[in-house]
Amino acid sequence: MVASISVRKSVAAAAAYYQHMGKDDYYAREGEAPGRWEGRAAERLSLEGSVSKSDFEAALEGLDPRTGERLILANGIAHTAGWDMTFSAPKSASVLWALSNENQRMTIEAAHQKAVNKALNHLENNHAWARRGRRGGTKERTAGLLVAAFDHHTSRDFDPQLHTHAFIFNLAPRHDGSWGAIVGRELYLAQKEAGLVYRAEFANGLERSGIDITREAESFRVTAIPRNVERAFSKRREAIENAAETYGYSSAKGMEMAALRTRKPKQEMNREALLSMWREEAKILGFDLKRQRIHAPKAENIQERGANNSLEMRSKLRAKAAQIQPEKHAEMQPKKVIRPPNIARLLQRLAATLDGPSRMSGIRFSLRQKERNLERE
């Protein structure tokens, strides 16, 4: 599932979630911040850059992390702290990221993050509602969402899996400047739509960077990654699907249970070890990324190739024309019309030639007489 959503009901559970997010990325570089602030509500609270534990917990309590001002009443366990909406890259994109050089990985990560931000912005503009009034019976559009985004790169089975956990706080500004809880049901209803926005923008971002992709229905694949390699790097997904089949799970809640049943204890592996392991796995599969055509042909190359094809076609036509045999060539020429000779004119010319003093006067007379006879006819 490209976009999934799960609730964190209590403040305590959400605080533990923050700790989990900070430790759950086996790829994380030393000293790397565990998350980043996103959403227009973060701008209102002057929250930017990395997400600190104190700011995260203050927002969970309904407080302004900068001033300590109470924005909404926190109801302890009865108050839903927020929702984790996770955006996961198609497996072929994650495999490409894992087997690429550092610059290419940064390009793919940037395209992924931009796609996540566009999906979150879509939620803010179309599906974010705040509660107002007695027991939150009235709902109205919010002026933004407060989101802490955590970028992760691996699955628990150490497969490459580029994904982002976007924690949406149950705290949003209204257009009149006040704050309130949000309507969680609207987020669930928008889950699929947000996933579509994410995938479309991610695909466009990869294409803009020159990476060749193949679009498939509502998703896409990186063309250079064969399906057997994609499946080989999907051990976590295979384990969840096997568990779902074993226990008869089919609903979204059931798949979540299957994921919990197959979850392995966290282990540590540094970044370089992971990259080396992924390259070795690809080698065992007989796959060499360097031998694949990753980037799509550039527009100018396509035009040049079209021009070359045109020249080649003209050359072939010329060669074919040169092979035409002379007699066939003559047959193709328009035939001359042979007109019958003018007998009267020929006789006149002959008479003029013979006209003169000669002993052949009888003959001259006979010829002229013949000419007059022909003219009368």
Rank of each mutant, 00 (worst) to 15 (best):
V2C: 08
S6E: 13
S6Q: 14
R8A: 10
V11A: 09
A14N: 03
Y18A: 01
Q19T: 10
Q19P: 01
M21F: 00
Y27S: 04
G31E: 03
E32N: 00
A33R: 08
P34S: 01
R36W: 11
R36G: 00
L45D: 04
L47Q: 03
E48R: 14
G49I: 04
S54Q: 14
D55H: 13
D55R: 05
F56A: 07
G62N: 10
T67W: 02
R70K: 15
I72K: 05
L73Y: 13
A74D: 15
A74G: 15
G76E: 03
T80P: 10
A81W: 01
A81S: 06
M85G: 04
S88M: 10
S88H: 02
S92W: 03
V95P: 01
V95M: 03
T107K: 10
I108G: 02
A110Q: 14
A111G: 06
H112S: 07
N117F: 06
N125G: 09
N125V: 01
N125L: 11
N126T: 12
H127M: 05
H127D: 08
R131E: 08
R131Y: 07
T142A: 14
H153R: 12
H163K: 07
A166S: 15
F167N: 02
R174G: 02
W179C: 08
G180M: 01
E186Y: 05
L189N: 13
Q191V: 09
Q191K: 15
A194K: 01
V197K: 10
Y198V: 03
R199S: 05
A200E: 13
F202R: 11
G205P: 06
E207R: 14
R208S: 09
I213P: 01
R215E: 04
E218F: 04
I225S: 02
P226L: 00
N228R: 08
R236W: 03
R237D: 00
N242L: 09
A243G: 03
E245W: 00
A252Y: 11
K253Q: 09
G254W: 06
E256Q: 15
M257L: 15
A259S: 15
L260T: 14
T262P: 06
Q267I: 15
E268S: 11
N270Y: 00
N270D: 15
S276Q: 13
M277F: 11
A282C: 07
A282G: 06
L285A: 01
L285Q: 10
G286F: 04
R291M: 12
Q292K: 12
R293G: 00
A296D: 04
P297Y: 06
N301K: 13
I302M: 14
Q303M: 08
G306P: 00
N308R: 15
L311F: 11
E312R: 12
E312Y: 08
R314D: 11
R314E: 12
S315L: 12
L317K: 12
L317S: 11
A322L: 13
A330V: 06
K336L: 10
V337G: 02
I338D: 08
R339F: 11
A344M: 10
L350F: 13
L354M: 14
L354R: 09
D355G: 07
G356Q: 07
P357R: 07
S358F: 01
R359D: 14
R359V: 07
S361P: 03
N373W: 04
R376S: 14
E377L: 15
